[in-house]
C-alpha cells in the first residue's frame, strides 16, 4: 500500500461520495456544493496523472463557469429563497 494509492483512494471516494450527495441532498444548492467538490476531486485526480493543464482547465471551466451557470439557473427560476421555507 503506497502513499499514492492512499491519496488516490481518498480522492476517488471524495468524488464518488460527493456525486452521491448531489442526488441525495434536500436543498438544491447543497447539490451544487457537492458538484463542486466532485469537480475539484476529479481535477486533483488529473494532477495525479501528471496532466496539470487539464486539471487547471477543469478548475477554470467547470468550477468557475459551469457551476455558476447552474446556480444562476436555480436562482432565476425559484420563487422561494429556500426549499425549507415552502409552505
Amino acid at each position: 500500500m503506497t502513499w499514492e494509492l492512499i491519496v488516490f483512494l481518498f480522492l476517488a471516494s471524495a468524488a464518488l461520495l460527493s456525486a452521491l450527495w448531489v442526488i441525495a441532498a434536500k436543498e438544491i444548492v447543497h447539490s451544487v456544493i457537492g458538484l463542486v467538490t466532485c469537480f475539484i476531486a476529479i481535477g486533483c485526480l488529473f494532477i495525479m496523472l501528471n496532466a496539470e493543464f487539464v486539471a487547471i482547465v477543469q478548475f477554470l471551466v467547470y468550477v468557475g463557469a459551469v457551476t455558476i451557470v447552474i446556480l444562476f439557473g436555480i436562482m432565476l427560476t425559484r420563487r422561494e429563497i429556500m426549499e425549507s421555507e415552502k409552505k
Binding site: F59, G64, A65, M75
Partner: peptide, 30 residues
C-alpha cells in the same frame, strides 16, 4: 515554477463567484 502558474492564478480567481452566490443565498435575506 509551477507549470501553467499564470493560468492557475486565473482559475483560482474564477472560483470566487461561487462562494459569493453561496454566501448570498445561505444568509436567507433579500
Amino acid at each position: 515554477y509551477v507549470t501553467a502558474g499564470a493560468l492557475f492564478a486565473l482559475a483560482a480567481f474564477s472560483i470566487a463567484p461561487f462562494a459569493i452566490l453561496l454566501a448570498g443565498w445561505s444568509s436567507n435575506n433579500k
